[in-house]
Simulated assay, not measured.
Amino acid sequence: MELTVYLAGQIHDDWRETIKQEAAKRDLPIEFVGPQTVHERSDSIGEDILGEQPGKLFRDDAASSINNFRTQVLLQKSDAVIALFGENYKQWNTAMDASAAIQLRKPLILIRPESLIHPLKELSNQANVTVETYDQAIDVLSYIYE
């Protein structure tokens, strides 16, 4: 049985590759999907499809509509979601994706460091599982196959 897992979280480092590599090491039959990780593409997709916009607000709105469309389709097709909250970046998109997963009743694994226990307490309470490391998240997925 192959699972599709949506990887929600910041796009500024290679944490997704770490998750994918660990899953591959364990021979887990998982397809990973997620947001557009090429920042420039994500920011310009509205104008790339709809043409030049009359200002920054309209440019961001056009890009947001298309990025939200992509996220909604991929979240709905996913069997589970991993949402990473780290300490280095603002996590608005991660919170939005995690909340959408909860609303769609998608099983949610939340990864967050100990320092974010308090600010994420409500979201963590709604997740199926909250862990602190990538390995723990993969352990949870591995358990499905035992």
Rank of each mutant, 00 (worst) to 15 (best):
A8V: 02
Y145I: 09
L116I: 11
P113G: 07
K106Q: 07
V33F: 06
G86L: 14
K90T: 15
Y143G: 12
Q91M: 15
F69L: 12
L104S: 06
E31G: 09
H12F: 12
Y143H: 13
S142P: 07
Q36Y: 03
P29Q: 14
E17A: 08
E17M: 08
T94H: 10
D27S: 14
N125D: 07
Q72E: 12
Y143A: 14
H12S: 03
Q76K: 11
Y143Q: 12
I111N: 01
I144S: 10
E2Y: 15
D139M: 06
L120H: 05
F58L: 06
N67Y: 08
N128D: 13
A23N: 09
E132K: 11
E146C: 08
E132D: 07
H12R: 11
E122P: 01
I82M: 01
Q136M: 10
L7E: 00
E40K: 02
I102G: 01
A100N: 06
E114G: 02
L141V: 05
E114M: 06
E40C: 00
A137Y: 06
T37M: 07
I45V: 05
S42C: 03
R16Y: 06
I144V: 15
M1T: 15
I11A: 01
T18S: 04
P29K: 15
S65N: 09
S78K: 01
S124W: 05
Y89N: 14
E146F: 12
P35W: 05
I102N: 10
P54W: 12
L108E: 04
Q136P: 09
I19F: 05
I111E: 00
P54H: 10
V140L: 08
L74I: 07
L84S: 01
A98Y: 10
N128Y: 11
E2D: 13
R59Y: 07
A8L: 04
G46H: 00
Q91K: 14
H39L: 08
P35E: 10
R105E: 13
A63F: 09
T37H: 08
V5D: 00
K77C: 06
K106E: 02
E87W: 15
L28E: 08
I109A: 01
A127L: 07
N67F: 02
D61N: 12
N68Q: 11
L75P: 04
D43G: 00
L108R: 04
A80C: 06
T130E: 04
Y134N: 13
I111Q: 01
L104K: 12
T133D: 09
